[in-house]
Design a protein around this nucleic acid. Structure first.
Lengths: 343, 343
DNA sequence: ACGTGCTAATGAAACGATTCAAAAGCGCGC
DNA sequence: GCGCGCTTTTGAATCGTTTCATTAGCACGT
C-alpha cells in the first residue's frame, strides 16, 4: 500500500524542512517555531511516519527498554511483580519487555542474549540456577542487572527478595498467639531453600514459646494432592494426638490439608485445628474456609527492583544493595480465634 | 571496566582483518577460511563482543522479534499460550517479547507503539476493545497482525480463536449423556460475548434432547464467591426441584457451587448432581471432587497464531485466515456417571 | 548602512552492522 | 613469466536517526 517505509527524510521533504528540524519536532519541540512544528506534525500524520527505534538507539547507544526474565509467567507472584515493574518503568519513561524462562536455563540464556543484543538499559532476572558467571559477564560489559526473588550472596549486584525465615516465624507465631501449642509444619523434601527457610522461622517461633511443640511432616510434593494425603494422615490420628495448628509451606498444600481435614473426619477449622498457608495465592481467599496465609509484597518488590535498576543505570558507581522485604500476614477464617470456645 | 562498548571494528582490528570479514564470520561462516574464522572468533571471545541488534536491524530493515500483547499474563490461558508461541517462534529463529495490557486500552496502545517502533516482524494481539482502527493503521504500514482469542469479523487480518458455542454444547451434551435431564446453566450477566456463546451452545444441546430442560441462573460475578451463593440457593430447593446437572460458565463459579452443594446440604457429586465448569483452570483437577471442564487448546492456539503470522510475514499476499478451534472436554469425577445407581 | 544579539533552521557527521563490487592471493598450465 | 579461474578478503556505501557547529533570518540600536 504505502511505499515500504517512511523515514524522517520523507517527512522533511513533505514539510519542506531539513531532517534536523523534524528530529527537533520529535525530541525538542521547544526549539521549533509553532508554525513549523505544525507543518511537520501534519506531514507526519499524513505519511503515517513511525520512528525507527533501531536507528534512534544506534545513535543514542541505549534504549528505553528494561528486560525482565521470570521463572514462570503463569505464577501469580511473577505476573503481579511484572505488572508492578511495568508501571514503575512507565512512570520513568521506560518499557518492560518480558521473557519467560520457564525454569529452563537454555531459555534463560537465550533471553539474556537477546536482551543484551537489544542493548536494553538493564535486566531484572529471577535466575534459574547459578547465574553467577553469566551475571558477571554482563556486568563486566557494563550491563546493569538486578536479581529478583534471590539474593546475591557475593554482593556483585543489587537484589530484591523476601525474608522467608521471617515469614515462617510470622505464620507460626500467629498460630501460637491464637493459643495453639501442638503445631505441625508441612513441607516437601526441602529442595528449595525457601521451604527450608520457612521451617527455620517456624522453629524459632516455637522455641520462643514454652510448652509449644513443632512436628515436621514431609509431603510428597508442594501440591493440593500431596496436601490431601498429609491431611488424611493427620485427621486419622487419635484425638489426643491431633495438632491444633498446622502451617503449610505453601497454599496448595494447605488447601489439600483443608479438604482432607474437613471432609474425611469432619473436624472444624479453625475451632479444632487452625490452618495457615504461604504465598497467598488468589484461590486462598475463596477456599471453603478462607485460608490465612503469608504474602510476599509483590507490588513493592516489582517497583523496588526497577528503582534499584534505574539507580544503577543513572549512577553506575552506586553501591549494590540487597533489599530484603518482610512478608505480610494475611489473617482469614482458617485461623480466626474469635469464635473459639475458651480452654 | 571495559572500554564502553566493543564494536565489530574493534574485533576486526584485534584480529587483523577487515570489518567485512568479521561480519562474514558471524553471518556467512562458510565464506571465511578456517584459520581466519578461528582468529576472529578468538578476538570476539577475548573482547566480549556482543552484536548490536539496533545496527543490524537498521541495515536489515527488519528484526527477528515478534510482539505478543495479552490481556493478562496472570491468566493461565494466556501464559500457556505465550509459552507455546515462544516455543514455536524459537523453532523459526524468532523471539517473542511479551507485553501485558492488563485489559487497559492505554497500555495496549503503548505496547503497539513500542513494538512498531522496534519494527517487530509482526504482532499477535489479544485486543482489549475495538482495535479495528489501530489494526487497520498497522496493516496499512505493512505490519502483519494476527488476532488472538478473537475473530476479526471484517476479515482484515488472520485470527485464532475458540468456538464457545461448541464448548457450551459439548458440556451440556456431556451432562445429557450421563443421563441428566434437569440442567442448570450458571453464568454472570452476559457482558461477555463468550458467556453468551456458551449459553447458546447449552441451549442447542438441550433442544436436541427430548425431555431435557434448561434453567438459567444468573450469578453476581464469575467468581468462587458468587458461585457459592448460587450453589447455596440451589441446594436449598425442595428435593423434587433439584437439578441433576449443573453447567457453570467458568470453573471458578463451578468450584463455588461445588463447595456450597457439598457442605451446605451434603448432597453428593456426581451422584445427586453432576457438575461441569469451563476453562479447565489448574485448580479444577484438585478440587475436592475433581471438576470436569472444557478446555481451550491453548498450546495449539499459540503455535497456530505464530504460524499464521509467519505465513503472512513471508508472503504478505497470502489470504487472511480465521482459524476457530473446538474446545476439548475434560472428564473428571464431578460428572463420572460410572458409580451412579441405575434409574 | 552596519554591527549585535537573538531565535530558528540547516545539514554533515556519527552510531555499528551488513552488503557487494572490486581487489588480492593462489595454484596451475602453458 | 603470464594469464586464467578460483577462493578469500577488503572497504566504501548504506540504513534512519540524533547531534551540534554553522548559517540564516530578523529586530533593534547606533
Amino acid at each position: 500500500m504505502e511505499s515500504r517505509t517512511v523515514s524522517i527524510k520523507d517527512v522533511a521533504d513533505r514539510a519542506g524542512v531539513a531532517v534536523g528540524t523534524v528530529s527537533n519536532v520529535l525530541n525538542h519541540p521547544a526549539r521549533v517555531s509553532a508554525a513549523t512544528r505544525e507543518r511537520v506534525q501534519g506531514a507526519i500524520d499524513e505519511l503515517g511516519f513511525v520512528r525507527n527505534d533501531a536507528a534512534r538507539q544506534l545513535r543514542a547507544g541505549q534504549s528505553r527498554t528494561i528486560g525482565l526474565i521470570v521463572l514462570d509467567v503463569g505464577n501469580p507472584f511473577f505476573s503481579s511483580l511484572a505488572r508492578a515493574a511495568e508501571d514503575c518503568a512507565a512512570e520513568n519513561g521506560s518499557t518492560v519487555v518480558l521473557g519467560d524462562s520457564g525454569q529452563d536455563a537454555g531459555r534463560e540464556a537465550r533471553y539474556i542474549d537477546v536482551f543484551e543484543q537489544q542493548r536494553v538499559q538493564g535486566m531484572l532476572i529471577s535466575p534459574v540456577g547459578d547465574v553467577g558467571p553469566r551475571v558477571e559477564a554482563l556486568r563486566s560489559r557494563g550491563m546493569p542487572v538486578v536479581l529478583v526473588d534471590r539474593t546475591d550472596t557475593q554482593r556483585r549486584c543489587s537484589s530484591v527478595s523476601v525474608d522467608d525465615v521471617a515469614g515462617g516465624y510470622m505464620a507460626v507465631r500467629h498460630l501460637l498467639e491464637a493459643g495453639r501449642r501442638r503445631i505441625v509444619f508441612v513441607g516437601a523434601r526441602a529442595d528449595y531453600r525457601q521451604v527450608a527457610d520457612r521451617l527455620t522461622g517456624a522453629r524459632q517461633a516455637v522455641e520462643e514459646h514454652d510448652g509449644a511443640v513443632l512436628e515436621v511432616v514431609e509431603a510428597e510434593a508442594m501440591t493440593v494432592l500431596a496436601g490431601r494425603d498429609v491431611g488424611g494422615e493427620i485427621a486419622q490420628r487419635r484425638t489426643g494426638e491431633l495438632p491444633d495448628g498446622i502451617f503449610c509451606a505453601n497454599d496448595l498444600l494447605a488447601i489439600g490439608v483443608m479438604q482432607a481435614v474437613l471432609l474425611i473426619r469432619g473436624l472444624r477449622i479453625p475451632e479444632d485445628i487452625a490452618l495457615i498457608g504461604y504465598d497467598d495465592i488468589d484461590f486462598s481467599a475463596s477456599a471453603v474456609v478462607p485460608l490465612s496465609s503469608v504474602r510476599k509484597p509483590t507490588t513493592l518488590m516489582g517497583r523496588t527492583a526497577v528503582e534499584l535498576l534505574l539507580e544503577e543505570i543513572e549512577g553506575p558507581a552506586s553501591r549494590r544493595r540487597q533489599v530484603i522485604f518482610d512478608p505480610e500476614l494475611v489473617e482469614r477464617g482458617s485461623t480466626q480465634a474469635a469464635v473459639r470456645a475458651a480452654g
